[in-house]
């Protein structure tokens, strides 16, 4: 909406008129959605080769996902790593976001930048650094390395989303609770946490998606016999050319869309474009 100044009977009023920017970005929509649409259509191919347009309709490749054992094992690994990493990232991220939002202290902006840095550094570089130190120097087992790596990539999302939630929190109610006799820790659990729970839930979902879909870190961390779901998809594409990958992609798109819908309902996606 663009606001335009109009003079009416000597009084200046502002009237809204529709933005003309729509036609400028609308050609970009098919450019963005086109590939997703093609993938979705190819997932219903009845033949053995991935092709567009499909020659016959079938749901057999959706069924095939559950028959390929390496997908099921990799799916469990991804879920386990994402959930465990999410839990640790929450335990570290909630107090960090609270401290960064609540207090003013020396070096605050440096700490803030430090926590957000995993988003700014290219994943492939971060992955190589993890390979060098977590796997090379400390020789952690594969699961532990994945756990540490995924916690690091989830932490900035947890801190950023919860900080956004805390920016709307009125800290005077925290003081009110303390003046009524609540301890600092009690106030945090009975007043602060219930008021930012939608932000925490949104942070958990976004971080989970980021971890679950991650390729660039996981590709360095996985090893013999242990693989995450996206890495397993890559391996599968290298060896097979059937539409199973299209079917998986459609399912992942739906899962991601479902999660983002919940995040939108909880906080609104505008939170991630602010600040």
């Amino acid at each position: 909406m663009v606001w335009q100044k109009i003079k009416s009977k000597g009084v200046e009023v502002y009237a809204g008129k529709k933005s003309r920017i729509g036609p400028v970005y609308s050609p970009g929509v098919p450019f963005l959605l086109g590939p997703l649409l093609i993938i979705s259509v190819t997932s219903f191919e009845g033949g053995n080769i991935l092709k567009f347009p499909p020659e016959e309709f079938s749901l057999r490749w959706y069924e095939n996902i559950f028959n390929v054992e390496m997908f099921l094992v990799a799916f469990k690994t991804s879920i386990l790593v994402s959930l465990a990493g999410n839990l640790l990232a929450l335990l570290l991220g909630v107090p960090a976001a609270y401290a960064l939002s609540r207090f003013d202290f020396k070096g605050k902006s440096v700490i803030n930048a430090f926590f957000v840095s995993p988003i700014l550094i290219p994943g492939i570089v971060l992955g190589f650094a993890f390979l060098r130190y977590i796997v090379g120097t400390y020789q952690l087992p594969i699961y532990a390395a994945l756990f540490v790596g995924h916690t690091v990539i989830m932490l900035p999302f947890i801190i950023r989303v919860i900080s956004s939630s805390l920016s709307n929190f009125d800290f005077s109610i925290e003081e009110a609770a303390e003046s009524l006799g609540a301890s600092k820790l009690g106030t945090f659990f009975t007043v602060v946490l219930p008021n930012i729970k939608s932000g925490i839930l949104a942070a958990v979902m976004i971080a989970f998606l980021e971890s679950f879909n991650n390729v660039d870190i996981s590709v360095y961390m996985t090893g013999p016999g242990v693989s995450t779901f996206p890495i397993q998809m890559l391996t599968y594409v290298e060896n097979y050319f059937d539409p199973t990958i299209s079917a998986i992609s459609v399912l992942l798109m739906f899962i991601t869309a479902f999660f983002m819908f919940i995040v939108e309902r909880l906080m609104g996606l505008s939170y991630f474009t602010k600040r």
């Binding site: 109610i173 003081e175 009110a176 609770a177 003046s179 006799g181 609540a182 007043v191 219930p194």
Partner: peptide, 28 residues
Amino acid sequence: PVNKRNFGFVFQNYALFPHLSIFDNIAF
């Protein structure tokens, strides 16, 4: 500390707990 002083404090912005009902605000 604040919670051991037992002093009342009236906040300019009322400082009500938005996640609690009126009853629970008073009962807090």
